[in-house]
Amino acid sequence: MPGKDVKIVGFLCNWCAYAGADMAGMARMEQPAGMRIIRVPCSGRVDPLLVLKAFQEGADGVLVSGCHPGDCHYGSGNYLARRRLELLGRMLPALGIEPERFHYTWVSASEGARWAEIVNTFTEAIKDVDEGS
């Protein structure tokens, strides 16, 4: 369905990714309007069930983003997240969800441009899946 609005849920850790998204805002970097950010203290707080719930509720895509490996505010939360989300990503096709709709990545507090880029490319990737290309 070309033109359909893409709705993405983004779970962002407070210390890095959320701050990075703020940084993109401060630099007035235009982004697609479909991203809905939910702030969490740490990417390690993101229960895979929350991700699945988001898909169940009709999200076109789910993004989880936290601090770069080694930079976690709590030391190891992002490593735990990576382990859980990696597994989750592999399970998704079995549940009938295209793997392109799920993405986890790291963004630091100073990487506003990187954040804007991620929102853009992820949104495009989901549009491609929707259009079946």
């Binding site: 969490v40 203290p41 993101v46 709590y74």
Partner: peptide
């Protein structure tokens, strides 16, 4: 410190992070 990692790991949902 309020990271909530435990919250995400708890199978029966017995531990939860205040505010999140």
């Amino acid at each position: 410190r309020g990271c909530g990692i435990c919250n995400a790991a708890c199978p029966p949902g017995a531990i939860s992070l205040n505010g999140y």
